[in-house]
């Protein structure tokens, strides 16, 4: 009788990565806490430069917003650029201690996703997001930002309500 055709193949290999990192023993190993703490400290150091870096991105967002105003017929491509940039910013703010940047960028990401009608209202809404992010960085509003953070979030939510 002919051998049945192979429907599925399972590959079960030796754990070579573990051998490389923890030797041939069977016990489990871990990343030393002090190294994680050292990496955290390095991250904190880098976070000091984050506001300057993100400011340059906010300037680029402003430029794109200006183009949305000046060349309405090309709004689709400007929105796409803003969409990409907000996606990046959404993914970074929280890591460097600025979750409000992540939250506002996330909202901007939703505002500019495909399906937008590229109206003047949408363009105003982009501006509200940029203004909110600028306020976060200008005031160095890190963490949840306490009362100021709450005010900024409420301010943006009101703008969203007004322009949606």
């Amino acid at each position: 009788m002919a051998k049945a055709a192979t429907k599925v193949r399972f590959y079960r290999f030796k754990n070579r990565l573990k051998e490389k990192c923890a030797g041939l023993g069977t016990g489990s190993a871990s990343i030393p806490e002090e190294l994680l703490a050292e990496a955290e400290a390095e991250l904190s150091k880098m976070s000091e430069d984050y506001p300057d870096w993100v400011s340059s991105l906010i300037v680029k967002l402003q430029e794109q917003h200006g183009r949305c105003v000046d060349t309405p017929d090309k709004r689709k491509e400007h929105f796409l650029e803003i969409h990409h940039m907000s996606h990046d910013m959404k993914g970074q703010g929280g890591t460097f201690g600025y979750p409000l940047i992540s939250a506002f960028a996330d909202s901007l990401y939703s505002t500019t996703q495909s399906g937008s009608l590229y109206t003047d209202n949408d363009v105003e809404l982009i501006k509200s997001h940029i203004d909110s992010m600028r306020a976060v960085i200008r005031g160095r509003v890190s963490g949840d930002g306490g009362d100021i953070g709450k005010q900024l979030t409420e301010g943006l939510n009101k703008a969203i309500e007004k322009h949606s």
């Binding site: 079960r12 991250l43 890591t95």
Partner: peptide, 24 residues
Amino acid sequence: KPFTISNIGERLSLIIERPRQFVH
């Protein structure tokens, strides 16, 4: 994203300690 240093450590530990068989 946004991730923390612990998140990086956890992912590295996972791929070392709990590798999965491959399926084709």
